[in-house]
Design a protein around this nucleic acid. Structure first.
Lengths: 193, 193
DNA sequence: CCTACCGATCGGTAGG
DNA sequence: CCTACCGATCGGTAGG
């Protein structure tokens, strides 16, 4: 493999990554339908049609971004929780990891997770399947909590997840940090009494 | 005014209401961009172009639905809270009213409140302004709560509202009722200790 | 990666 | 409320 070949490989590899990053930001800001391939091209410095050298379709691009974001989040949360024994501390560690991923200023990552409404049916099926697997992580954490009787664990988990997901909608940098917000969330959900 | 005239007025009035109802359901299910005027026409039994006899534009239709939904929700919550003195009971009454509106099976009402991403800028400005006014209702309720020190009321309010808004995404009829879910929410947010 | 284009669909309008 | 259409934009492709 020649030097030129290697350089070219690196070039196209980072080119694709750059397109993915740009696309993720646009999707997060304007939604699936609100972002055209031409928008993504423009933000990447190419024409819309040229993107198809790097990706197969808009649908496939969106699914790849969504699932990649959940892969990354899942790994970070699992790592953050790994060494923590106390159930409530595990919950808080998971909230911190989730919000640090979700609220990172740049980040290939999510907040598109709520876009399910505007996406084609075939895409939605894939997104929901991946998301359900992700939510299993929280199911396990919630299952270990010594919650008082009368609290429905299913509702509890849904409420927790919807808060973590929605945080990106109202978060403004410069006030509380993601970690501090996670502390507030964990405190709300800590119900020993 | 002749009998025929009256009947005709009632006809166009209820026709318009029917279109609004149908449009609200489609917007809620498929989002602003995912719902075309032709979709709304088809569900109303007319061609897309014919809708413009009843409405000015897609944007105006969406804003009217959104603001009307918030008007209705605001009125119901204000009424539910009016006779309640204890701050925590007021919070719970507001949650019940909000979720009963939000989770009503048919209902002209919301869950489109999160679609802000995909909407034209000019529309978003109007939606945000109306929503901010709506949130003032909860700001007042939260302000009266005897929350322990260390809980940030701004975060607390945002967390509460994002849960109430997101409930429609995971709610499934036949399990817990909206009222019971509101009870779970209120219990989570009741932090006297 | 561009030029040049495809068929489909969009919001909206004129004219009846 | 329909017919018939407008210009714009969409995702995507061929061919270089």
């Amino acid at each position: 493999m020649s030097k030129k070949q290697v350089a070219s490989d690196q070039g196209t590899r980072s080119r694709r990554d750059e397109i993915l990053t740009v696309a993720a930001q646009l999707f997060a800001r304007k939604g699936y339908r609100g972002t055209s391939m031409r928008d993504i091209g423009e933000a990447s410095g190419v024409l819309g049609g040229s993107l198809y050298h790097h990706i197969k379709s808009k649908d496939a691009l969106f699914v790849e971004l969504h699932n990649g974001a959940l892969d990354a989040a899942e790994a970070r949360i699992a790592a953050a929780v790994a060494d923590v024994a106390d159930p409530w501390d595990r919950l808080e560690a998971a909230c911190v990891a989730m919000l640090e991923v979700q609220l990172a200023p740049d980040s290939l990552t999510m907040p598109m997770m709520n876009d399910f409404r505007e996406v084609p049916d075939a895409v939605r099926v894939e997104l929901v399947a991946r998301r359900d697997r992700f939510e299993g992580l929280f199911r396990a954490i919630v299952a270990d909590l010594p919650l008082p009787a009368g609290i429905d664990r299913s509702i509890y988990r849904n409420l927790l997840l919807s808060q973590l997901n929605a945080a990106a909608d109202w978060f403004r940098p410069g006030r509380l940090t993601p970690r501090e917000i996670a502390g507030q969330v964990a405190r709300l959900f800590r119900h020993d009494g």
